[in-house]
Amino acid sequence: MDVVETLTESMRQAVGPQAAAFAIAAVGINLQFGYTGLLNFGQVAFLLAGAYGLGITVDAGGSFWLGLVVAITSAVLLAFLLGVPTLRLRADYLAIVTVATGEILRLVVGSAWGGDNLGTGGPQGVKEVTGVFRDLNPIPDGSYGFSSFRFESQTLWVTLVGWTLALAATLLVRQLVRSPWGRVLRSIREDEDAARSLGKNVFAYKMQSLALGGVMGAIGGIIITLNFTSVIPDYFIPTVTFFAYAVVILGGAGSVWGPLVGSVIFWFVIQFSESSLDATVPEDILSSQDLAALRFVLVGVLLMALMVFRPQGLLGKKEELLADG
């Protein structure tokens, strides 16, 4: 097994466009779950809204910029759709409704019916959706990096934009949670009746948190779409949400930099363990299908182990943790 190869490949995964996209979506989850205590288990629905908002608009002849507007608007609308029936109820209802909505949306946009009636392209998805984004790429053609740590010009462009947005989202959340607005969020996370008794409109704050975090999910979906250059319905399975939760919890829910750090380490660990297994275990014992399945087993074990042994993740504060007693 080539250790250098495995390491560089893992590094490429850790800072690549997918890690950037997950970092942005995770910043959103951190705002919702880490700071407000909302169990949005349908973040993938927001990624989907962003991806298809952009894809359908561009496919129908709209500009890339209009596509972005449509993507963000769809995410906000989705937040209202999910929030109105559930945010006044117990936290668990949001969890159930969001996970269900994410799955339903995927089935609808990926169905032949969705292709015929919604312009989603059905099971094939929407192709060539980058529009003007591709032309804006200032990086000359070519391949950059060394060994397996190598990005094509376009990929590098998406990656740079992705991480810039991830940083911007993080700084925005940092500013928000350090303000009195963030203080109200934290009070809701801990005890919404207390916040209510002090005159805070809990529903409005939850809705703002859900919508803003959802918009970040949509931006994550856009980055993924720009990277693939097409929208593929099969990408948006519920597991995407849970991968993003693993990122948040690994980094530390309720810590500003947690999602960024979490995403880098998460993708490094995933790729590293997979490459190592691939290189060391013979194919007839562990087929490539099994290997792909093992990735999910690994994430599952990671989620459980973190919640049991280190619920504050790498950067969180144990004292402020939602997850204890």
Binding site: F242, I249, V299, L303, M307, V308, L322
Partner: peptide, 12 residues
């Protein structure tokens, strides 16, 4: 362990 944490455990 809080129920929120336990829900995440069941997901894992």
């Amino acid at each position: 362990t809080s129920n929120v944490a336990l829900i995440v455990v069941t997901i894992g």
